[in-house]
Design a protein around this nucleic acid. Structure first.
Lengths: 105, 105
DNA sequence: TTTATTCATCGCAAACCTACGATTGAGGAC
DNA sequence: GTCCTCAATCGTAGGTTTGCGATGAATAAA
């Protein structure tokens, strides 16, 4: 099965998936957020704005990208939002990376 | 040991390294190039321009990014350049991703 | 109803990325 | 020396990302 971009090149699902997860991890702030979530199971946006010295809007944006990539999920707990790692996507991401790096050696 | 960006945030070497490798993998063309190198051990730029329907300059640019990230190396074989995967960096990248994804579960 | 809290979203500026064609440079072949 | 080939680099256009402050929506508390 294939998909395309704006260049006339077709990519496999595996290639698209790997690129999607890699893009999500391509910014150190998002890595920091994910590490925090790894250590806490879940957290609120507010905890991150304390932990990370960036504007609240900026952190919210990074959370959105992680959510769009599927790596995290947000549960409404008004007036707050509780974010957790999406374990299914997490496992998939890990597998995709490992199988990519596992060639001959 | 720490490093910084333009925001006043300091990141660990691990965070920087992971972000660096993730960024290199964040474009499907670069994934395609690395897969090709995995299957061939080595290749010339010219083979990639046949394999991938993009301008030679564009492919050269992607190769430069992979080289800057350390994932590949280019050996001069005039008038061509032979690219191979840098196994040391490849192994490091794999470890960095695996250890990132290996938390509790 | 009014107020306070929390977080998402909007709008903007600066920086960065991706693609291209054109040019340049390094070597070999002649 | 002059050509030829291969690939890197330059310059540029358009798109995307990253940051910010300001605004908005939703709910709880008063």
């Amino acid at each position: 099965m294939v998909k395309r971009t704006g260049t006339g090149i077709y990519y496999s699902n595996k290639e698209e998936t790997l690129a999607k997860y890699a893009k999500a991890l391509a910014h150190p702030v998002r890595i920091r957020i994910l590490q925090f979530l790894e250590s806490q199971a879940c957290c609120f946006t507010g905890e991150l704005t304390v932990e990370i010295p960036l504007a609240q809007s900026t952190i919210s944006q990074h959370l959105k990208e992680l959510k769009d990539a599927g790596l995290i999920q947000g549960d409404l707990m008004p007036p707050r939002v509780k974010y957790c790692i999406n374990k299914k996507a997490w496992t998939e991401a890990k597998q995709v990376f490992v199988s990519f790096f596992d060639y001959s050696s």
